[in-house]
Design a protein around this nucleic acid. Structure first.
Ligand SMILES: [Mn+2]
Ligand SMILES: [Mn+2]
Ligand SMILES: [Zn+2]
Ligand SMILES: [Zn+2]
Lengths: 129, 129
DNA sequence: AGGTAAATAATAAAAATTATCCTTTAGAAA
DNA sequence: TTTCTAAAGGATAATTTTTATTATTTACCT
């Protein structure tokens, strides 16, 4: 992935990507905490720079979540997100939005090529309590 | 609105709300620029505090937009947003998401009570150029 | 009109992000 | 392999964004 976008393959970058693979979605500060276990002297600037690079070339995606900090994920097929207001967990869900987007396009005249949907509620586990 | 939530009605707050009424959606920095025309000595801290107060009591809503800063709006009926990547304009659109949300709920077990959808693309005006 | 809790302004502090600059290194070329 | 160099990392400063503190002012209740 890195090579495809002319980014050098450094241990730090591999470490960042590895954590992203494991966690799925993670905030900057969490990521910094994790990465320091493997690279105790990594600079926070290095982390920010790399996140930004990878966002620019679309290796990563930022997920903006209502009432909390952004999380980052490795780009994959288009999908939406669900966030639990009790336990804060963030999960993927694949939905077909074609109909609504088509409708929105007709109604507004916009031509859309991206969408970001975050559904907020309570996850199954937290509903029990 | 303010009184309903036990917030004192101050000229500064009225000014902020008036700008929000006029602009529809606005970022913090834009809002600060505007409000200073009417209240040249207003403190940025006052602005942040008031925005946060009004968010807490749901007088305002924050709209998180991919690749740009959040904008704020006066709460109104549930609706989605469209952002033009050429001219950056942000517009409302009312869509029926009941179907997809119902489907998401069944598929995941979540119970949802809020959604945030932002569609990105090119607005009709910018398509001409 | 007077009293008081809440709001404002000014400012400091904290948190988040970016810039600078020197050192190190990945990867290409010899 | 070794050498070379642009790119990347680390340390740290600087900016930017947001929140906290505190003294002063004010909305609003009595
Ligand atoms: Mn995801
Ligand atoms: Mn809106
Ligand atoms: Zn939960
Ligand atoms: Zn446009």
């Amino acid at each position: 992935m890195l090579r495809e976008h002319n980014l050098k393959v450094t241990p730090q970058r591999l470490g960042i990507l590895s954590i992203l693979e494991d966690t799925g979605h993670i905030s900057i500060e969490e990521l910094f905490t994790f990465i320091r276990k493997d690279f105790s002297s990594i600079s926070i600037a290095t982390l920010y720079k790399n996140i930004n690079f990878m966002l620019e070339v679309n290796i990563l995606k930022e997920v903006k979540i209502p009432n909390s900090k952004s999380k980052y994920e490795i780009s994959k097929d288009e999908h939406s997100h669900m966030v639990c207001r009790k336990c804060q967990k963030l999960e993927d869900i694949t939905l077909c939005l074609d109909g609504v987007i088509e409708h929105a396009s007709e109604k507004s005249g916009y031509s859309f090529d991206e969408n970001a949907l975050v559904l907020s509620g309570v996850c199954p586990q937290c509903q029990l309590a």
